[in-house]
Design a protein around this nucleic acid. Structure first.
Length: 485
RNA sequence: GGGGCUGUGGGGUAGCCUGGUAGCCUUAGAGGUUUGGGACCUCUCGACCCCGGUUCAAAUCCGGGCAGCCCCA
């Protein structure tokens, strides 16, 4: 049992080689299949798709609670739309998939993002301040011809996300929306999926193409590299001006719309969920998003099979009454041990073992995936299963929080920064500027220290005391530097 | 963007240097015995990434492509 057999369990330890561990776990747990062989495009299998589906549900519920309404927009964008906002097209041009030879005059792009579809619709739908705010979203696949190396779920040429596009009557309201988007990331990605993040206001040179400013969510991966999760953008009036999208304000004057965009990439967040919580036995899925929350393994012989199965299905319906997703693994060909390994690999939070012993004492054996603790409890105590699920998720979240919090280091010189980055941490430093004039220092950070200036904290005003760690001029910002995916 | 490594049944691999019968483990399918931490027996299916070149002969050598992984920027 100590020796793992090939082709079955995981052969790589997460601590020793995160990258290999990740590749192995997503295939063996049947999240994805990488064998189609198109660069940057992956097949997501039922287990992965069901998790993603559950993630969408939480996210959409929160968005709708905050006044967003669903839409579905075309997957293609006419060239004239995409090229209307000059900075936007400049930023996205190298990444656009163009559809050629469609036999018509209109040139089309596969959408890399949909500002240039929503804004012209805002123009049609919004006439007065009474139509505002207008908060819309869609579930969508988007396409970006990434020139860098692709990684399954982490960086693909196609990914699955929700994009919110909102229009407001004033800059203040739009900026409030950016804060609300950060709150949505907190409520859903952190509180529900258990993935902590740092909301970073990106430097001027690193904002979304066409935005006034961008706030990205930086999350630590187990190897200490940062991955950008949901980002929210204040577009200001850039797109509304490009598309001439105006409204009549309360003073009966025409004004351009103020717009924002928010894009949680669910397929990529799944990468963080897997990476953050998983262990050497495989996935550990939060109770809130696991497609199966409790798996029941009946253990029987030919003699007692009927009795055991009958009791098992009673336990099942008891749990289902509590609105819990249960699966009974009664496959006769597999022995219990094999089932344990399989469902641990798939990340199921709780496992119930039920056999002869439990039958006698009216108990069940409960295995908890994250702690790997096995204990006997009374069947009646299963009515607390939801609470146990909440505690399960809290444990995952707190463990992730501890990992994340301990990775910020105040640094006072280049050496310290380099050491911080190399040990998988994020350096907090004084910096001259995150406006255009700071770009030279940012480039120096990249070439000399091997890190990126990720930006300033968006939910906290940090005042620098001292000089820029690179050029020595008086610092105006406290920035964070780390390695990123 | 630069560099390196790799591609053999579904998965993991041997063979490649030195050209000549593709071997092993596992999975899958059938049958049987089994079921408290990856069961056993019997039988069966299944592969040289693609295109071109060299050669009597290519998994093997050469060129190009595609795909995957790693490191650096």
């Amino acid at each position: 049992m100590e020796e793992k057999r090939q082709g079955e369990g995981l052969n790589v330890k997460k601590e020793e080689n995160f990258s290999d561990w990740f590749s192995e776990v997503i295939e063996k747990a049947e999240i994805v299949d990488l064998r189609l062989g198109v660069k940057g495009f992956i097949v997501i299998r039922p287990w992965g798709a069901q998790i993603i589906e559950n993630m969408f549900e939480h996210l959409e519920k929160e968005l709708q609670r905050k006044g967003h309404k669903p839409t579905f927009m075309p997957s293609v964008i006419p060239k004239e739309n995409l090229t209307k906002e000059s900075e936007h097209i400049k930023g996205f041009t190298p990444e656009v998939f163009w559809l050629k030879s469609i036999g018509e005059n209109q040139e089309l792009a596969l959408r890399p993002t949909s500002e240039t579809v929503y804004t012209p619709m805002f123009k049609l739908w919004v006439r007065s301040w009474r139509d505002l705010p207008l908060k819309l979203y869609q579930r969508a696949h988007v396409f970006r011809l990434d020139t860098k190396a692709t990684r399954p779920l982490i960086r693909g040429r196609e990914f699955i996300w929700i994009e919110c596009h909102d229009a407001f009557a004033s800059k203040e309201e739009a900026e409030k929306q950016v804060q609300e988007d950060i709150d949505t990331t907190e409520k859903v990605m952190h509180q529900i999926y258990g993935v902590p993040f740092f909301p970073m206001k990106r430097p001027e040179w690193d904002k979304f193409a066409g935005a006034e400013y961008t706030v990205g969510s930086d999350c630590f991966m187990p190897d200490g590299k940062l991955i950008q999760q949901p980002s929210t953008h204040l577009m200001g009036q850039k797109f509304s001006k490009a598309f001439n999208a105006k409204f009549k304000n309360k003073e009966d004057k025409e004004e351009y719309l103020w717009t924002t965009a928010y894009g949680p990439a669910v397929s990529r967040i799944l990468a963080s969920v897997i990476a953050t919580h998983g262990d050497d036995s495989g996935l550990i899925l939060p109770f809130s998003i696991s497609p199966i929350q409790v798996v029941i393994i009946p253990i029987f012989t030919n003699k007692n099979k009927e009795e055991i199965m009958e009791k098992t299905s009673k336990i099942k319906s008891l749990l289902e009454k509590k609105d819990v997703k249960v699966h009974v693994d009664d496959e006769a060909e597999k022995r219990p041990g094999e089932k344990y390994h399989l469902w641990e690999l798939k990340g199921i939070p709780f496992r119930i073992e039920f056999g002869e012993k439990e039958m006698k004492s009216d108990e069940i054996t409960l295995f908890t995936r994250d702690t790997k603790e096995k204990k006997k409890i009374k069947i009646a105590d299963l009515s607390d299963i939801k609470k146990m699920g909440e505690e399960f998720d809290r444990r995952l979240r707190e463990k992730a929080d501890d990992f994340s919090k301990g990775r910020i280091l105040d640094c006072n010189d280049k050496k310290e920064i380099k050491r911080a980055i190399e040990s998988g941490k994020m350096a907090r430093v004084n910096f001259c500027s995150t406006e255009k004039e700071g770009i030279k220092c940012a480039e120096a950070v990249e070439t000399q220290l091997g890190g990126d200036v990720r930006g300033t904290l968006a939910n906290k005003d940090e005042i620098p005391k001292g000089d820029c760690i690179i050029c020595g001029k008086p610092a105006t910002k406290v920035v964070y530097i780390g390695k990123s995916y």
